[in-house]
């Protein structure tokens, strides 16, 4: 039995969903029963289950943890499972449809599903891998939660790899080599991890032609991050540390 919030109202929502492939695509219009409490992912799921079974999209946890359901909603990158229709339609003039598109700055596979491989390759290129300094037979290093480095790492560590920041970034649009906010944010958390031994390797990795210095500090990443992280701040930290390392000729 449907709860009060799940009962459809008398109204229908006009939805325009981008459908296509890597080469071309167009918006298709759908009418979806409006509920009192409804997320963007609910809308997409309704279309796929009741109107267009071939609609392709990606989701998993539905609770804002897995980072797989991000899409462009009314032109803005958002996590669709935690974005309610009411919020997405705020500021949109009456009569205009709810538009849903695949994430910007990533190649489309089909409909709303993007190819994320380039996004994750950049994490590897930014040396986003942990370089252990101890073996499993050694005692675990004690890290003080009050240390400045740990606090800096904690501020940036809750990234769910949803690529919302990557889709929001104009530097990514302009420069295909640019590693992007998520990969650089990851690099910053490892720079501040006292247990990590790959500092200079990582500082070199984020100092190349697609490195942190290509960020224009426009802060769209911080503006749109669903977990309210501040990748611009992380990138600024990387610029500072790479500058120091370059002046000391360590990189």
């Amino acid at each position: 039995m449907l709860s009060e919030a799940e009962k459809p109202t008398a109204e229908f929502l006009d939805v325009a969903i981008w459908r296509g492939n890597a080469k071309r695509g167009v918006f298709h219009s759908y009418k979806v029963p409006q509920l009192e409490n409804q997320t963007i992912l609910d809308v997409v799921s309704y279309v796929q289950r009741h109107i267009e079974p071939k609609l392709t999209y990606r989701f998993a946890c539905r609770v804002g943890m897995c980072g797989s359901c991000a899409m462009m909603v009314n032109g803005r990158p958002m996590w669709t499972c935690r974005t309610h229709v009411d919020r997405a339609m705020r500021g949109i003039m009456r009569g205009n449809p709810l538009t849903i598109e695949p994430l910007r700055n990533l190649p489309v596979i089909k409909d709303l599903a993007c190819d994320m491989s380039g996004f994750f390759e950049k994490w590897t290129r930014a040396e986003g891998r942990f370089h252990p300094t101890r073996t499993r037979s050694e005692a675990i290093e004690a890290i003080s939660p009050d240390s400045d480095a740990r606090k800096a790492a904690n501020e940036a560590i809750e990234c769910i790899n949803c690529a919302v920041c990557y889709a929001a970034c104009d530097a990514v649009t302009g420069n295909k080599h640019y590693l992007g906010p998520a990969a650089l944010n990851r690099a910053w958390t490892l720079i501040n991890d006292q247990r990590d031994g790959g500092r200079n390797l990582r500082l070199s990795a984020v100092s190349g032609k697609g490195g942190c210095h290509n960020c224009h500090s426009q802060q769209s990443c911080s503006n749109y991050c669903p977990n309210e992280l501040n990748p611009t701040m992380s990138i600024t930290g990387l610029k500072r540390e790479t500058t120091k390392a370059a002046l000391k000729r360590e990189i």
């Binding site: 100092s207 190349g208 032609k209 210095h213 290509n214 370059a246």
Partner: peptide, 12 residues
Amino acid sequence: MIGVRLYLAQRL
């Protein structure tokens, strides 16, 4: 498309 050296040169 700049690396750390061009970045430094521009800031300095």
